Computed example of a mutant assay.
Amino acid sequence: MNSFASASHAQSTALPVSRLGTPTEDLYPRLFEAILEQRIDEDSRFTEHSLQAMFGAGRADVRRVLTQLSHEQIVVLRANHRPRVAAHDRELIRQTLHARRLAENTLVRLACQRPQPDDLKYLRTLVEREKRAVEQDRRGAAIRLSGEFHLRLARMAGNLPLAHFLRSLVPLTSLAIARSQCSTRSCCAWQEHLALVEVVERGDVSKAGMLMNRHLDHLEQTLLGTTFQHCVVS
């Protein structure tokens, strides 16, 4: 879809407004999923006004979410220009995946040292929601929930700077997955996420590191067609 200028078209494609969370919290996943589903892509000519009409949101909320997506390198914002979806080259994706491997090897090991029942319950909820999205072929939701799983697992580790660093990498990876040719069922491995939850719950540091590396191997294969010689943090 290359234009969102038509108000009538925006109204016809608008998603129902959720009553959960604040307006900005509600708008972010809806707008991000539209990008992941490529209903809004790098060729789309959209504006703050057209996004307001499309999502039934206020201007201030649209601006906040666009700013957040800009910080995550999903949207490019320039003065006196329309917003646009970012286009990333293969080298940036390669570097991002390498950085994720280094960060997540440490984070998953730290998470094993302090698994809390509420955190584990929430992770299982995310996996179940991801599974349903895959089964319903809701690709954007499945990819977003997959990323949210990794971020929630990082929060369990108790290292805020490292979790914040991962937060800067996951959305960019999600966009790369959305642009790949893999099917929803093959690129969103909820089964691997569930296996990670189980080993973290047991506190099995060695197995958790192995499963995380294998999981990231699959992601690299999907996005780059190759697997790096990776560094395992012990």
Rank of each mutant, 00 (worst) to 15 (best):
V134P: 12
L120Y: 03
L66G: 03
A103C: 10
L107H: 02
L107A: 12
T125H: 10
Q73M: 11
R129K: 11
H88M: 09
R82D: 10
H98G: 00
A86E: 12
E72R: 14
Q95Y: 01
A99L: 04
C112S: 07
R78L: 04
L92M: 13
E104W: 01
A111T: 06
Q116M: 07
Y122E: 10
L66K: 02
K131S: 05
V134L: 12
Q68Y: 12
R139M: 10
E72Q: 15
R132G: 06
K121A: 15
K121N: 09
L97A: 02
E128A: 14
V85P: 07
R138G: 07
D119W: 09
D89V: 06
A111G: 12
R100T: 00
R90L: 08
H98V: 01
Q68A: 12
H88E: 10
Q113H: 13
L107T: 02
N105L: 01
E135D: 14
L102V: 11
K121S: 15
L69T: 12
L69K: 03
V127F: 08
P117W: 03
E135I: 09
R129Q: 15
H88A: 13
R124C: 02
A87M: 06
A87G: 04
Q113E: 12
P83A: 06
A111I: 11
V134A: 10
V76Y: 05
Q116C: 03
V85E: 07
P83L: 09
R100D: 02
E91T: 15
D89A: 04
H88S: 13
K121D: 14
R139Y: 08
L92D: 06
I74L: 13
L92Y: 06
R132E: 14
V85D: 03
L123M: 11
R84S: 15
H81S: 04
V134H: 14
E128H: 08
V127Q: 10
N105F: 00
R109V: 00
E135M: 14
P117L: 06
L66M: 06
R114Y: 01
V127R: 08
V75A: 12
R138E: 15
L107Q: 05
L126M: 04
E72K: 15
H71W: 07
D137M: 07
V75E: 13
L77Q: 09
L97W: 04
L77M: 12
Q116F: 01
P115W: 05
V134G: 14
E135Q: 15
R94Q: 09
V134Y: 13
L77C: 11
R84T: 14
T67C: 02
R109Q: 15
Q113K: 15
L110Q: 08
V134K: 10
D137G: 00
D118M: 08
A103E: 11
A111K: 08
R139P: 11
D137T: 08
E104C: 00
R109D: 00
A99T: 00
R132K: 14
V127N: 09
P117R: 09
C112D: 02
V76M: 13
D137F: 11
K121R: 14
I93Y: 02
N80A: 11
V85W: 08
P83M: 06
L92K: 12
H88P: 03
P117V: 04
R90H: 14
K121H: 07
T96Q: 03
L110S: 04
